[in-house]
């Protein structure tokens, strides 16, 4: 059984036919060939597949296609065109927050969701906001530093829409 589905993806309207229970993760990676969203566990535990759906952070492995009707989805492929990304990228570079890179796209979207909620977070709030995104390389410290730095350097930016 396939259903017809319309939603916004990275600023563009999309209509497609798919199985209702197909995971958004598979939809993105297999059907739409957007492979920036990674699969680390398939169980919602690692956050490598985190995307934004209506501004909320969700794991694409837990979201079936059927619930996407009318939603606004942002993946790393869209997010990387935004002003917010530019700041986070520069701060991730300054802090040295990327190693193997597999958690990075999900981590960035978690950082975006967090900064949108708390534009001036404490270190503790940053950690809590990233708690669903596993990283095995960095021990998180440099990622936390990067997000704190982004809050400072991008002040004001997280109260404006991402523009997608």
């Amino acid at each position: 059984m396939k259903i017809k589905l319309s939603f916004r993806l990275n600023g563009e309207s999309i209509t497609l036919a798919t199985e209702p229970l197909k995971r958004l993760l598979d939809l993105l990676r297999d059907q739409l060939e957007l492979t920036g969203t990674k699969e680390g566990c398939g169980e919602g535990e690692c956050g490598a597949c985190a995307v934004l759906i209506d501004d909320r952070l969700m794991n694409a492995c837990l979201v079936p296609a059927a619930v996407l009707e009318g939603k606004n989805i942002i993946t790393i492929e869209g997010y990387r065109t935004t002003a917010q990304f530019k700041i986070l990228k520069s701060c991730f570079e300054k802090a040295g927050a990327v190693q193997c890179g597999f958690c990075t796209p999900g981590m960035l979207l978690a950082a975006e969701a967090l900064l949108r909620q708390k534009p001036k977070p404490t270190a503790e709030e940053v950690r809590a906001g990233l708690a669903g995104n596993l990283c095995r390389c960095t021990g998180y410290n440099m990622i936390v530093e990067a997000v704190l730095l982004a809050a400072k350097e991008g002040e004001g930016l997280w109260s404006t829409p991402v523009g997608l």
């Binding site: 199985e19 229970l21 197909k22 995971r23 598979d26 398939g42 169980e43 919602g44 079936p64």
Partner: peptide
């Protein structure tokens, strides 16, 4: 539910 009924990556639950 999505975890309980999951299969192989790329296969619909």
């Amino acid at each position: 539910l999505m975890v309980r009924y999951r299969q192989w990556s790329g296969v619909t639950p």
